[in-house]
Amino acid sequence: MTAPILRLKAKIARKARSTRQGFDGFWHSLTLAQRLYTVALMVYPVSVWMTMLLTVTALVIEFWPRFLTLFHSLPGKAILLLFYATITNFVLATAASTVNEVTGVDAQHFDYTHNFAILLFLPSWMLLLSVIALLLLQLVLPLYVLFLLLFKPFQRFGITLMDNTKRPILTALARFILCFITTLNLFVASGDFDNAGDAMAQLNDSFERGMQPQESTEEEASRKQKQFEVTVGAQNDSSDKLIKVLIAQFAYHLEADNYSRCAKSDNSKVVELNDYEIVELFEDESAPYGIRFEVKKCISAAFPQ
């Protein structure tokens, strides 16, 4: 009995060694982006956010050389210039609207504060919209490939988007699935958080009354999704308030004047709107963003009370 057992153990050991060597060979044959795609698929049941992070990182690594190729061509520069000019225009409008909300007057009266707000919004907008554009590109890539196959003469004008590495089909499939998951979760995270909050409040009320329902698997998944949306919504509100606090503090400490031709309080600063009106700024902890803005009549030697 001993000899067959030893032979079986040896056979199992050889099989395990062969499997390990095969996996090592497979793993080392993958590029860095392909390894990240593989890990992203493996961790998806555990952490959606980790899957999204790994997917975006792999996309950046994989498409950065192609981005440089696009940038060094004249049509590519035109496309990128149009894309980022559009983003910049939206950032300008968003910054002006935010400054108006914080100060209560037109953003043109707070030029430096408006520029500061642009600097706060621009990096995040460019990064987020670039990632979204990269994800959407992967979702429409199969249509692009189909277009090239149907219209071969146009291939010379296209950019090489197919993989030159091993296993291009599997890589494209994994990329498409992961990009679909990431895009879907991004859209879910930007959904209607108020409705999700109301639903969670109603559910909590039913629990407090002792009417705890027996949830099915689908109901449990829906509840967890709503909890996820409420959490992300609270984080977005916190980030938005922080930006507005920074804008208000910048307007008070750096742009507003300590002295003015118009009469003002001793503990305030002033920004002149025109010859007849001023905005007086006060430090006030009870104000929404720590600074109170008041539009007042300019009382001066030329315009006495």
Rank of each mutant, 00 (worst) to 15 (best):
I5Y: 10
L6V: 10
L6G: 07
R7S: 10
I12V: 13
I12K: 13
R14I: 11
K15I: 10
K15D: 12
D24I: 12
D24P: 06
T31S: 15
L32T: 08
L32C: 04
A33L: 00
T38W: 09
L41C: 13
L41A: 10
V43R: 04
P45L: 06
V48T: 14
W49H: 12
M50H: 05
L54K: 00
V56P: 00
T57V: 12
T57E: 05
W64R: 08
R66G: 02
T69P: 00
F71S: 00
S73C: 01
S73T: 01
L80M: 12
A96C: 09
T98W: 08
T98Q: 13
G104D: 04
A107C: 03
Q108L: 05
D111Y: 11
H114T: 15
N115A: 14
F116C: 03
F116D: 04
L120G: 03
L120F: 11
L122N: 03
L127Y: 11
S130T: 14
L135C: 00
L135R: 00
L136K: 08
V140H: 12
V145L: 08
F147D: 01
L148T: 04
F151L: 11
F151G: 02
P153L: 08
Q155Y: 10
R156I: 00
G158K: 01
T171F: 00
T171I: 00
A172T: 02
I177S: 04
V188G: 08
A189S: 15
S190H: 13
A196P: 07
G197M: 11
M200W: 06
N204E: 13
E208K: 14
Q212M: 14
P213S: 06
R223G: 04
R223Y: 06
E229L: 12
V232C: 06
S238M: 14
V245K: 10
L246Q: 11
L246T: 00
A256V: 04
N258P: 02
N258L: 11
R261P: 07
A263Y: 09
K264S: 05
V270K: 02
L273Y: 06
I278Q: 04
V279D: 01
A287F: 03
I299H: 09
